[in-house]
Simulated assay, not measured.
Amino acid sequence: MDQVTKPAGFWIRLLGNLLDGIIVSIPLGLIGFLITGDFDGEDPITSLIGFIYAVAVPILWYGYTIGKRIVGVRIVKVNGKKLGIGAMLLRVLVAGIVYGLTLGIALIVSVFMVVFRKDKRSLHDMMAGTYVTYSKPGEIEDKQAFVD
Rank of each mutant, 00 (worst) to 15 (best):
L19W: 02
A8S: 14
G84D: 13
A95V: 05
I45G: 04
V94L: 13
F116Q: 06
I52D: 02
R69E: 04
F39P: 00
R91V: 13
G100C: 14
R91N: 12
V73P: 01
G80Y: 09
D142I: 06
D43F: 10
S135K: 14
I108R: 03
K136A: 15
L60T: 03
V57K: 02
L93A: 14
K118Q: 12
M88S: 07
G67I: 04
T133Q: 01
G104L: 11
R117W: 03
G9V: 04
I105T: 08
Y64V: 09
I26D: 06
D125H: 05
L93W: 12
L123Q: 01
G104N: 05
I45F: 07
L90W: 12
L30M: 09
F116Y: 10
G32H: 00
V147Q: 00
V76T: 15
S25P: 13
Y53W: 05
R117I: 10
I35E: 00
V109E: 00
D148C: 15
W11Y: 11
K136P: 13
H124Q: 12
I12Y: 09
L48M: 12
G37W: 00
L15G: 08
I49R: 01
H124D: 02
V24K: 02
L14N: 14
L18F: 10
I49E: 00
I66M: 13
G100Q: 04
Y64R: 01
A106V: 07
I105C: 07
R13E: 01
R117G: 07
